[in-house]
Amino acid sequence: MDYTIIATTTFGIEAITAKELKNLGYEDLTVEDGKVMFSGDEMDIAIANTWLRTAERILIKVASFKAESFEELFQGTKKVPWGDIIPINGNMHVVGKSIKSKLFSVPDCQSIVKKAVVESMKLKYKKDWFTEDGPEYKIEVALLKDIVTLTIDTTGPGLHKRGYRENSGGAPLKETLAAALVLISKWEPSKSLADVCCGSGTILIEAAMIGKNMAPGLNRTFICEEWPGADKEMWEQVRDGARKAVNKEEFRLLGSDIDTWVLKTATDNAIKAGVNEYIAFQKLPMNEFSSKQKYGYIISNPPYGERIGEEREVDQICRDFGKIHSQLNCWSVFVITPHKDFEKLFGQKSNKNRKLYNGKIQCYYYQYISA
Rank of each mutant, 00 (worst) to 15 (best):
V117W: 09
L52T: 15
K122M: 15
E136A: 11
K127Q: 14
F70K: 02
F65I: 12
L123K: 15
K97V: 01
I99N: 05
K102Q: 12
S111P: 01
K115F: 02
F74S: 10
S69Q: 04
L52H: 01
Y137T: 04
S69G: 12
S105D: 13
N49M: 03
C109M: 11
K115G: 09
Y137I: 02
L103C: 09
K102M: 08
V62F: 02
L103Q: 08
W51K: 10
K127T: 12
I99E: 10
P107D: 02
A116E: 11
W51A: 06
E71D: 14
V80A: 03
I85W: 10
E132R: 08
I88Q: 14
I88V: 15
Y137W: 12
S64D: 14
A46G: 12
N49V: 05
S120M: 10
K126D: 15
F130N: 07
L103G: 03
W82E: 01
A67C: 09
G134N: 08
D128I: 01
D133P: 00
V113C: 12
V118H: 06
C109E: 07
T54F: 02
K127N: 08
C109K: 04
S101Y: 03
T77M: 03
F130S: 13
Q110N: 08
R53C: 01
K127Y: 04
D128S: 13
K102N: 09
G76D: 06
P107H: 05
H93N: 11
I112K: 05
T131K: 15
V80T: 07
V94T: 05
A46S: 13
I85A: 00
V113G: 01
E136F: 01
T131L: 15
A55F: 09
W129T: 15
P81C: 01
G76C: 05
G134C: 09
F130G: 06
D84M: 11
I60K: 14
E72W: 04
A48V: 04
F104V: 06
G83C: 05
D128R: 08
G96F: 05
D84K: 15
K79E: 13
V95S: 01
D133A: 12
P81V: 07
V106H: 03
K127S: 08
R53A: 02
V80E: 06
P107V: 07
F104Q: 07
L52D: 07
A63T: 07
P87I: 04
A63E: 13
I85D: 04
M121L: 14
V95K: 08
W129H: 13
T54P: 02
P135W: 09
A46D: 10
K122G: 12
M121G: 00
D128T: 13
T77A: 09
I88R: 11
P81E: 00
